[in-house]
Structures are given as structure tokens and as C-alpha cells.
Design a protein around this nucleic acid. Structure first.
Lengths: 153, 153
DNA sequence: TATTGTTATACTCTATAACTATA
DNA sequence: TATAGTTATAGAGTATAACAATA
């Protein structure tokens, strides 16, 4: 009976207390939990605006890059073009984004005045949500962001 | 024309180069990107086994807590009981998990011999995938895990 | 020939509501 | 009355394939 103890007790019948969780030792699992927590707060922040996280990402990215190509936005956000079409469509319907042909096949995206105004408002709140979590950090913010970028390849 | 420059250039028409991304300054966005990258690798690792990330989380958690209540597993993994039922069902169908009544309404979950064997194999690979990313880290692993736990509340 | 945008479609995850039964 | 498990269902988000138009 091999009985290696690291964290997850095996062959011990669990009765009532808290569960042993070998998952907590995994960077990927912790990363996912932290990410889910922050996204949950973000979703709640965005609910009153009737905008999804994806739509707001698009709003912010196009706002920072007026006239950018739709295909470049998709690549930057890692959203496939088949999924980007309806996402852009909803923002166009709401009068937040306008597109214009670049050449015969590419589209440029730009925020409307209403889009910029909403972007300004929402970006403030997104940053406020983000800051709430940053404040809990004990370790250096810049070092953490750099490490996370490294992990994302 | 308010022109505050932090990272995201506004009112500058983007032509060709790389996009300005105010999102990169957000902890939540970086966290999500890093998490997605690691999950992508994990999914590829698990593909040959025909198991999802959720199924493997369940396999590992039940493996570390034989006889645990299904409801406790759901709470630990933050999976709603309505979604846990088919997840457990698939592992039972594959002969990896068995359940037994605790009282008239609760179920205990335990891995079968086959379940433990598969868990051992898969856990090794999951840890190997995780370690691949840990190795890239410049900052202290323990400090990072602790910080991530703090963020997850 | 590769790229862009679109449409249609399928698959996974997650969320809610309703139900049974048990504590 | 609250909890546990189940079922059915709806909604996101994401993935692929096929197509037309263009570079």
C-alpha cells in the first residue's frame, strides 16, 4: 500500500471536515480560480450596461485603436472571426461602433461619439474593479503582471 | 480634446503595426490570458484520455477524499449540483467512480481501482503540464500561489 | 493562393427552475 | 424548512466548415 502524503490523503475515508485538495498545489488551478473570481466581479460591474466581457474588450481595444482592422482585433483578443462578426454587429446596432471598408475585403472599426463616451465610463469602472483586487496583493504588481505575461506565452 | 496617454492611444488612426492594448494593464485580463494558455495545454494533455478538465478535477478530488459527499465535491469545485450529476455519471459509466448512499439523500463518492490507476497516471501528466509553466516563473512560486489564493477570495 | 468577413451549425459550460426524497 | 440529488432546458462562449469576395 503505497502511502505518499503530499496534501491529498488517500485511503483515508473522509467524514465531514474540509476536503483535501491536491488541486490547490497547481498553478493552473489557482490561476483559474483567481481569474474566475475577478471575471465574476467584472460581469457584475458590466451587467447594468447590458454588455458582455467580450463586448467591452472590443470596445476598449477599438477605442484605443481607431480605424483598426477587424481581423487585427480578432487576433489581439484571440476571438475567431466567425465569432467576432456578431460581437461587432451588436456594438454597431447599439451605435457604439462604425465600420468602413479599408480595401475590398477588410473593415476598419472606430468608436462613435457615443461609443467613446460609454468606453470612458466603463473603462473607469473596469479599472476600479481591477484595482479592488490589486489592493489585496502582497507582492509586487509589476513583477506579477510580467510573470503572467510570461505564462500566456 | 482630452488627450491622456497611459498606453492606449486615442484619436490616432491606427494603420498597420501592433495594436495598443490598455487591457494589458489589467490584472484580470492578464490572469485570464495566462489561465487560458495553461488550460489549453491541459486540455491537449487530457485529450488522449477522453476526459474534460471538469472530469479530471473530480477524479483528483474524489481520489484524495474517498467516501466524500457529492455535495461537498460540488462546493469545493464550485460546480452546481445540477451540472455535477452528469459529470459524476460519466465517470461512473466508465467505471472510474462508484457511489454509495450515506443517508437517504446524500451520496458518497469513491474511486474504483481503475479510477485510482487512471488518476495516478493523469495526475502525473497534469503536474508535468503545470510544471512546464512554473519553470518560466522568475518570481517566488509560493508567493505567487499565495497571492492567487488571496485573489480568489 | 491566402486572407477577410459572413453564415450556419454544433459542442461544451454554466445557470435556473421544478421536482422528489429525506434530514 | 433546508438540503441532496435529479431532470429538463436555456443561455453563453467557442469551434469548424463552407462560401463569396478580394488581395
Amino acid at each position: 500500500m503505497a502511502t505518499k502524503r503530499t496534501n491529498g490523503e488517500d485511503d483515508t475515508v473522509t467524514t465531514a471536515d474540509r476536503l483535501a485538495s491536491p488541486l490547490d498545489e497547481l498553478l493552473g488551478y489557482r490561476l483559474r480560480r483567481a481569474s474566475m473570481a475577478m471575471i465574476g466581479d467584472l460581469v457584475a460591474t458590466l451587467r447594468p450596461f447590458g454588455l458582455s466581457v467580450g463586448e467591452v474588450s472590443l470596445l476598449i481595444l477599438v477605442g484605443a485603436n481607431p480605424g483598426c482592422r477587424q481581423s487585427d482585433v480578432g487576433r489581439a483578443l484571440e476571438i475567431k472571426r466567425a465569432n467576432l462578426t456578431p460581437l461587432v454587429g451588436r456594438l454597431k446596432t447599439r451605435g457604439l461602433v462604425i465600420d468602413a471598408p479599408i480595401d475590398g475585403r477588410s473593415l476598419s472599426l472606430t468608436l462613435t461619439d457615443a461609443g467613446r463616451a460609454l468606453r470612458d465610463d466603463i473603462l473607469d469602472r473596469v479599472i476600479a474593479s481591477d484595482r479592488k483586487y490589486r489592493k489585496r496583493l502582497t507582492l509586487d504588481e509589476r513583477a506579477l503582471l510580467a510573470a503572467l505575461e510570461t505564462l500566456a506565452r
